[in-house]
Each structure stands twice: as C-alpha cells, then as structure tokens.
Design a protein around this nucleic acid. Structure first.
Lengths: 346, 346
DNA sequence: CAACCCGTTGGCATCGATAACATTCTCTGC
DNA sequence: GCAGAGAATGTTATCGATGCCAACGGGTTG
C-alpha cells in the first residue's frame, strides 16, 4: 500500500474516517460495530449515522489479523456432481451462514492422500478456524495429522484419521434396513453391488449387508463392485441378469441402481417381478425411476448442519474432543421391490 | 492480541521468527516466499530451510491487509441440489484453484433480490476480489448496482443486471435444437413444459421453442410450467397424457422429463412410440431413464471455467467491460424420441 | 471528605506482512 | 583503479481494526 494522498477519492473509508465523521475515537466505532454493551445510546446512533453516510464496511482482513479470528470455516470435498455432495454441502452452508460464519471450499479431484493434504493445507493457509473434511478418506498420514492438529477438523463419513470423525450416517444400519427388507419380502438371499472399496461408506454398506445375511443364516453371494456411476451399475446389472438365482439386489447407490434396473430389463428380467432392487440415497429422481426405486434415505442436509454445530463447538473448546454423532438412515419403500415370484406370501 | 510473552510456546512462528532463524531480514523472507527475482541462491536456500524447520506458513490475513489483495473470489448460488449447480460450481472451483485463487461461497435459498443482495454483500465484506453470480436473477436494484460496482462481478446465466452478464449457454439455441429435432422427426408440432418464469433460462428456452415453431409455420400450443422438480414434471405429464394431439414434448430440464415420462406411461402413452420427449441438461442419469432420454447437453463445467477466466481478466483490468461469451449446447439423441406413429417417414 | 465504583471513552501498542525507499555490495568498462 | 549500473538486502511506514489500560466524571459509601 502506498501513501497515495493526492487522489484520496478512491480509497474506501476506514474506521478512522467514520470516527472523525461521528466525532468519536476509532475505538468507539469499533465498540459500536461489535455490539459492545457500554456505549451511550446517543453515541451509538451518531456512529451508525456516520457509518451509513459514508457507506463504511469493516475490513475483514484487518479484523482477522487483529482479533485472530477469521469467522470462516473450510470444507474439503471431492469434485463430483453427486447428489450427496451437493446435499451435504448445502446443509453445511446454511448452518454456517446462520452462525455467522463464512464458508471456503477446497476441492480435490482425487482420493490421493496427498491431494487431500493439499486441499487441507490450502484451507489452513487461508486461516479458517475449522475444517470439515467431507471426503471418504481411509488412510491418514503424518502431514495430515499435523495439519489437523493446527486447525480443528472433523470428518464426515471418512474413517478416523486423527481428525476426529464426528458425523456419520450409520451405513451399516442402512445396509441392514435394505437387506432385511428384501429378506422379509421372502427372498432367499440378497445380492450386492457395492461402491468402490476405497470409500468407507461403500465398505460399511457391504459389511452391513453381509452381516445381515449371516445373521439370518443365508448364503452370502459374492459382491459385485461399481464406481457409483450409473454406467457401472449397468454393467453390474448385465451380470446379475445372467444369474437366475439373483432375485434381490441391494445396490450401494441410487445412481447405480438406475443402471442396474435398466440392465436387468434389457436382460429380460422384470423389476420387481423377477428381481427386486433397493438403492441408497433417495435422490430426488428415485421416485421417478421405472419402476420407482425402493431406497434408503440419508439425511444429508441434517448431516451438514450437525457437522457445523459440532465443529463450532469444537472451535470454541479445542481441548474437548467432539463426540461422534450418527444420524439414522430411513427405508423408503417404493415399487422396485416385491416378494419373489415363487415365494409363499403370508 | 495481547503481549503474552510468558508462554511463547503456542504462537505460530511469524516472518520475523523465520528471518531471525535464517539470519536475514523479514523483507528478504517475504521476497523469497513470493519468488522475487533478486535474491541470492544461497540466501533463498537458507530461508527455505528455516521455513521448513519452523513449519512456517504465511498469514493470509496479514498478507491481504498489507497487499490489498485477497486472492479469493466469491460465488453466489442458489442452495439447491441440481446437477447444473454442482457441475458449474465444480468447474469454477477447479479453474479458480488452478489460478491460485480461493473460493468462498455464499448461498441463498430464495430468489428475492434482497436475499441475493445479502449474499453478495457477505462476499464483498469478506474482501473477495471478484464475484461470480450464478443465480437466475432477473431484476436489478440500486443496492445491487452499488455492490457490483465495488467488486468486479459477473453473472452466469442471469439477465443483465448492471453486473455484466458474461457467460451463458445459448439457451435459445438449446431450445431450437430440441424443437427442430422433434419437427424433423415428423411431428406436427411440439409441446413445451417450461421452467419457472423467474428463471431467465426457462424464459429463453420457452422463447426459443416458440420461435422455432413459428418459423416453421406450426401451431404453438400453450406452454405448461413446472418448477424444475421431477414431481412437477409428473404433474405436467399427466396433463399431456390427456391430450391426444400431443405427440412431442420439449421439457425444460431432464429432471422434469423423468417425471413427464413416468406420467405419460401411467397415462397409457408409450414413449417414444406415442409421445417423444426431449429434456435439457444431459444429467448423468439421462441415459438410464426408461427409455434413455434424448436431451440437450450443456457444457456446465466449461461454463464455470470460462466464468473464472473472464472474471480474472476483469479483476486485472476493471475498466474493461468483459465481453459476453456464450457456450453452445449440443443435442444428444437417445431413445425417447422417434417419428410419430402415423407419420410418413422419409 | 476521601476512597471507590462504574459506565464511557480515548490513547497506544500490536497483529504479520508488504511497498517504497535507502543502503550496501559486486561487478563491469574505460 | 575508479565511476556507475544493477543486484542483494535492510529500514521504516502502513494496511485497518482490536485489546488492554488509563482517564474522566458523577454518584455511593464509610
């Protein structure tokens, strides 16, 4: 910054300008603006008037520097267009905003630990007060540990990484709900199209599915694996279409389920008459699949809000390790599931 | 900040600490860190070593305050889970990141001018260098004009608001592509399920559709209106299902198109044999609709990148009003469209 | 009547870095 | 061997707001 005094026109007014205009000290202006109690009503009014007249706005950088608080939180996410990401993010944004915090985003396009570390470090360098890691991390690393030590960080649906994992949907329950539903309908067993192994959610769902089958004493078919895309669901569906025994499938995401359904029909198997399909997420389109998709709804927005609430508490008391919280998924039964053709109903 | 000298342990190292450790002045440290040319190789190495040893990170707030540059841009979006929003945002984020900029998000849940103004002002208060307004604004306002005067702002797909609208998909072309495709297949005319009127995109598509029909000398059926949700598409589809003449529909979004398709089928009309349907967006699931949806793809990510490129140029030269750019949509033909049953083909 | 309390307000140092300016050093070329 | 260009580095003022402390004035209290 230069001491450009000649052409003073273009510099936005500072607190001193306001102070001068209101006939008080800069300190008082600061008090008024931060709602400090001990300020005479008249003074406050004068200051506010001056503020309005000059169109003054507090300089955030200066505030942050001086007070040591940035009033900003950061979010690390994967750069995808998944419904879940959008929904969680929107929950985070609305909660943060309501709490007077600003949200900065750092995205990564890969799941590499180093890529995630970079994103994290971009945020800490920016001086955010806390970070929500909304990435399906599995591995931790020294650098990551170090970064999360410096800034309160919590993880949504990743595994414990030293960054305390705090908010998560009980994925195992989600899988259980889906699998049980199919078994209850009378299916002998349930096949599974899982998500990519590196994703903790995918792993939890797979485990929950397997556990449910085992608990019921059913055979556990080998799980197939997709990459969350509808295309991968389609490929999985083509395989399932060749397996006559497969009358029920639990698909790890709605998007893949769309692909599965299409593949099954192209393979000459009707849904739900020949094969029942359950997805996970309850994306808006699930109800408009043909047939409407039975699925397990996840309270994404709520997760985002919960994460922010936890994070703010964590920021306020960094020594307190936040308690993990988990939100419950909910089964939504639609038309893609039914009793198997040959089953004895009731 | 207090002069807490007793327990110096917990304060992160500053530039002075690094300078001392490296045996140079703070200024030199600054030069090294910002890649200034005139620094001896040895000195640079010493500084870097000290930086590494102390685990030093530059304080962003101080940097911003002192240099007057925040290296951050802001994005205003609607708090939705639409695919388009996610896709545009992800384009913005990746481009901004590549350019060394940070992204701050301010979302609004309503289209009120005042809600948008608030979001905008949250960003300017934060000191971002530029703003991308990715909101379907139609009206402008004095406050908005003022805010956009202070910070370089450009609009994606909103209407001109004083904030120069710069990057947009040629929606009218999108509509023309879809409508022409249906006419070319031999349909007598094309019906239209539009988006909400306040959305500029919706209006442009409607206009493009109408213009195409008029240019071809066809009757222009009254347009129906939805709210982008699949549910509203479903409602529109139920109406269309009752109209025997309706053999072709241009739906303003893929999500609504899913609803339309389902409603049509429930009304006993086959797609595409009885009714052809075209959507817009080319969401990932479009290919897995039953039948796969013909649609007009929009280059969302590219829009985001283009917007950032324009914005950065605008920031660099604020007096230059950025030239509007528009990106082209592309027709993707799938199975939801076909020649009308009775039509004489070829 | 002094000691004291409390609501208000101003003075001053400070946060951590950068810009402009000053200074020292190091080579050239004549 | 010395002037002078230009590289390398240090000094100082500032960016805009906040925190701590002191000061002021009127009302209590012992």
């Amino acid at each position: 910054m230069t001491k450009q005094q000649g052409d003073a026109a273009r510099r936005p007014p500072g607190m001193t300008d306001v102070a001068r205009a209101a006939g008080v000290s800069a300190q008082t202006v600061s008090r008024v603006l931060s709602g400090h109690p001990h300020v005479r009503e008249q003074t406050r009014a004068d200051v506010m008037a001056a503020v309005a007249r000059l169109g003054y706005r507090r300089n955030n950088a200066a505030r942050t520097l001086s007070s040591g608080r940035s009033r900003a939180i950061g979010v690390v996410t994967l750069r995808t267009t998944f419904y879940s990401r959008a929904a969680v993010t929107s929950g985070i944004e609305s909660a943060a905003q309501a709490a007077g915090y600003t949200v900065s985003t750092a995205t990564t396009s890969s799941l590499d630990t180093s890529a995630i570390e970079d994103a994290l470090s971009r945020l800490t360098d920016q001086g955010v007060e806390g970070i929500i890691l909304s990435v399906p991390l599995i591995h931790t690393s020294p650098r990551l540990e170090q970064l999360t030590r410096a800034t309160p960080t919590l993880t949504i649906d990743g595994s414990r990484t030293g960054a305390t994992e705090v908010v998560a949907v009980d994925q195992s329950l989600a899988a259980r709900l889906a699998t049980r539903h199919l078994l209850d309908l009378g299916h002998e067993t349930v096949w599974h199209l899982a998500g990519p192994e590196q994703w903790l959610e995918a792993a939890s769902r797979r485990d929950g599915w397997r556990a449910t089958l085992e608990a019921a004493g059913r055979a556990v078919p080998p799980p197939l694996e997709g990459d969350w895309s509808p295309a991968s669901g389609y490929r999985g569906g083509l395989v399932l279409g060749r397996i006559p025994d497969a009358t029920a499938v639990f698909v790890a995401s709605d998007e893949m389920a769309f692909g599965v359904v299409r593949a099954l029909r192209e393979s000459g198997r009707r849904v739900p008459e020949d094969v029942s399909v359950v997805g996970v997420d309850d994306i808006e389109l699930a109800e408009y699949c043909a047939p409407p998709l039975t699925t397990v709804a996840q309270p994404f927005a709520q997760m985002g809000e919960l994460a922010v609430a936890h994070l703010l508490r964590y920021i306020a008391a960094p020594e307190t390790v936040p308690e993990p919280a988990s939100v419950e998924p909910r089964l939504v039964v639609r038309a893609s599931t039914a009793a198997p053709a040959a089953a004895v109903t009731g």
